[in-house]
Design a protein around this nucleic acid. Structure first.
Lengths: 229, 229
DNA sequence: ACAACGCTTCGATCATTGTCGAAGTGTTCA
DNA sequence: TGAACACTTCGACAATGATCGAAGCGTTGT
């Protein structure tokens, strides 16, 4: 017998609530949020949110830190974010080809962070541009930064050895659920996103994971990277 | 607002039923099964199973083929299997360190197929052995077959170019949910599993995804590969 | 054409679980 | 010490959805 099946079902049930799913997607950028903020995105009262958060934390999907009188919740590991991304990718497959694509928030579709790197049209466009210029080779399952790519990023001030001896992969693909194509992830993707925030090419919107592309950003992505966005 | 959250929740709800979870795990080896067989593993009546299967197919998790009077269901894409594997990996994290590990079916833990390659203790042992002999480099995020590894597999009669110009990656890691360590997947992993079946090193058990290691298999994995199992 | 079989649809029932009000805990600051 | 605040626990209620019996559909073989 498949003794894991009940466990898998229990586990999936954790995500199978709109409130909890909302909280999890809200946390997919890797940052911590207060219980109140998560109650807000879930659209429920603090009591209800607290109950949901307790369940998620009990199953090690979230970890909680205390900060004064408030509690901060974040995803327990990057693995959780990867799993959610995988689920979204499969969930985004349009089951009924006749129906119009599910209404995805346009801002979200345009540009967002996926844990710690760029996603959405922006993420894919930048990835495509780097690929076209020979900075990057990337398919759905693996990726590789070329010498030219490393030099290019180096010129921008990105030191890819930054977290010295990091066990994390330099360059890996991440399947973009809204574009249904891979974008750049891994250490390189994270470093690129960091740079974009530092240079004010993109700004986090107050709520959610979507980001705003500034005028500077538009210019930079277009001219420096050759991205078509 | 996160317009995807409700979709994600709906999607997760599909997996959040013990019956459906059982059906899905049963199908994770990539083969097709009849509705009756799936009703059996789910432990429900055919009517109920039919209802579950219809839901899964409607959301494009499964696809159905007719074969005479019976209907055969299989996973719609390998991506679905990968997603389920990712979920199991996260679900298998023991939330309560005090409790003993969740009782996983020992046969399942010992040796099973994961879509089309080897998993469980056997899968990890073979992977480790190949790694130790310099045939393979592999971590959680990426993998690479060395020249020695390609030669080694070639000597065994594995032609890794077999599906000519396959878009599928030669060598990639797959995180083993029972062992919590990566094992060999991709085209190389599939070819190796094929070989093991052909040479009768392993045999599918009548039900489920677990496989039996034959005496020949034990000898082959130990001597040929140097695996400690 | 008819019977047998596998599977699906329909309808009613019952359990699970998400929900919020009220009350409780713990932390910070005055 | 006491008040304010963030969050959690408890208890009861309502809705969603899984289940099976009964009946219907479609395919195969006689």
């Amino acid at each position: 017998m498949q003794t894991i099946a009940p466990e898998l079902a229990d586990f999936a049930a954790l995500i199978a609530d709109p409130g909890r799913a909302g909280m999890l997607t809200r946390l997919m950028d890797g940052r911590a949020q207060t219980a109140s903020e998560l109650a807000r995105v879930a659209g429920v009262t603090p009591q209800t949110a607290s109950w949901h958060l307790a369940r998620l934390a009990a199953r090690a999907l979230l970890k909680v830190e205390r900060s004064g009188p408030r509690r901060l919740y974040r995803l327990a590991t990057p693995l959780v974010a990867q799993m959610l991304e995988a689920m979204m990718t499969v969930a985004a497959v349009e089951p009924n080809p006749s129906r119009s694509p599910p209404r995805i928030d346009p801002q979200m579709r345009r540009a967002r962070t996926c844990y710690d790197h760029l996603a959405g049209e922006l993420g894919v466009a930048v990835t495509d541009a780097m690929r076209q210029r020979g900075h990057l080779r990337l398919d759905r399952e693996a990726g590789e930064l070329t010498a030219a790519g490393i030099a290019f990023l180096g010129d921008l001030g990105i030191d890819l050895r930054s977290p010295a001896r990091s066990r994390r992969l330099l360059c890996r693909p991440c399947l973009d659920w809204s574009e249904r194509r891979p974008h750049l992830a891994g250490r390189a993707g994270a470093a690129l996103a960091d740079l974009a925030f530092q240079r004010d090419w993109i700004r986090r919107r107050p709520q959610g994971r979507s980001v705003e592309i500034t005028a500077d950003g538009l210019a930079a992505f277009t001219t420096l990277f050759g991205a078509r966005i």
